[in-house]
Nucleic acid binder design. Structure first.
Lengths: 227, 227
DNA sequence: ATTCGGATACTCTGAGTCGAGTATCTCGGC
DNA sequence: GCCGAGATACTCGACTCAGAGTATCCGAAT
């Protein structure tokens, strides 16, 4: 059994458009773009073609014809198979019915922010908040424009979703910046004094170095995390 | 100039731990895990070792010694270089100071949900909401446990962040399920009747097929999106 | 008449990703 | 004193991904 892999949503999008009618890859891309799905699903040609290959290998889609127009490159039209039809609904049910852990970049930044001094972090968070504000407005204008064009709101829920997340992110980011500034979170003072008194952990004998660290409590606490 | 690529946060985490002191890859992994960073940054051995290779190639870290313990595999200890030190702070500033577009799986699901009938979607969204509820509790208990263990709250902000997003996601998901059920969003009735009267788009001549589609308005509207 | 941007339609390559696999050592329980 | 579970430390290979590159065609403006 060829190990199923539902990691790449682009494959699901391919199955979905092919459920409507057979197409060649380039047309799939054009269709997705015209529906704004490229806003929610990462789409670029390299991935598209290899995704289509993968789906073909797994028997979820199959080429139905290849046509050539003048001296242009050949176009291969694909159709979804019965297995493919089953897969679309199963996969979609999985996406809509469960929550999968994701790893946003910003979360990594938060986990490692101790490397920078707190004042710097506060300034950066404020910048980020402004960027998120713009992003929220951008999303709003997409919805407004589409609605004015007669697109029924059901087709825009993925944008609403993104906006809800951006707004939550914005609120969190602003709040964190404020809390760090006012040192309203435990450990900020130690973090600050660590950076003010040297900051860079010296490289050398690990054992020596441990006792060189200014704010021992912080390091120990961080290392002692038992989750 | 070797094109910099800051796509993989694991590389940043490697630079960050090596900023503290030189280590061999396996120890880096153990350190990250002990700090709970594997909750925020995707970590597995395959990626770790190739990430370390990449950083070495780009001159951001360098091997300082290789030691062997009995007949065990050799351990190569790496240290961060000056370029590496610059890179950590620059990269971190980028992560904390800007927002990068991400593509959550669920958003893809929302964009394609039209493939399933609305009632099915409502049921699935309810399931997802329950899962998110559990996830929120899990995150809360992580914070509680760590705090009880004496970890200063500053080291837990990335969990707070995740929790804020999960809660926003939960609120959105529940709200959407309700709205779809009550058809409080424009286009749901058309969607429903489309599925009740056949549902599957026939495969065949594209031109014919277009006029076969029961709810023409829906399809046209979706295709007419101009964003 | 010509040219030049943009659309059409893929192809190539190098790099990254991930899980499973390998082999050794350690330590506690019986 | 031996056995198995878990920790230590990495390796391998199949697959995926991104984005630049290639080649052709069309239409509108020069």
């Amino acid at each position: 059994m060829p190990r199923r892999q539902r990691s790449n949503p682009l494959a699901l999008a391919v199955l979905a458009v092919l459920s409507e009618r057979p197409m060649h890859p380039y047309e799939m891309a054009a269709t997705m773009r015209s529906r704004g799905h490229d806003e929610s699903i990462r789409l670029n040609y390299g991935s598209l073609y290899s995704t289509v290959d993968g789906l073909t290998r797994r028997g979820l889609i199959a080429p139905v014809e290849t046509e050539r127009d003048g001296r242009r490159p050949e176009r291969t039209v694909y159709a979804v198979t019965d297995d493919g039809r089953t897969e679309v609904t199963d996969w979609l049910a999985e996406l809509l019915g469960t929550s999968t852990k994701e790893y946003p970049q910003f979360e990594a930044g938060l986990a490692l922010m101790g490397v920078l001094p707190p004042d710097r972090v506060v300034a950066l968070l404020r910048e980020r908040a402004d960027a998120l504000d713009l992003e929220s407005l951008r999303l709003e204008s997409i919805v407004t424009a589409a609605t004015d064009n007669g697109v029924p709101p059901v087709f825009l829920v993925e944008i609403d979703y993104e906006r809800a997340l951006v707004d939550a992110d914005l609120a969190f980011t602003r709040r964190l910046a404020d809390d760090l500034e006012r040192a309203a979170i435990g450990g900020v003072d130690e973090w600050r004094s660590f950076h003010e008194s040297g900051g860079v952990v010296p490289v050398g004998d690990p054992n020596q170095e441990r006792s060189d660290v200014p704010s021992e409590a912080v390091v120990e606490a961080e290392e002692g995390v038992a989750r």
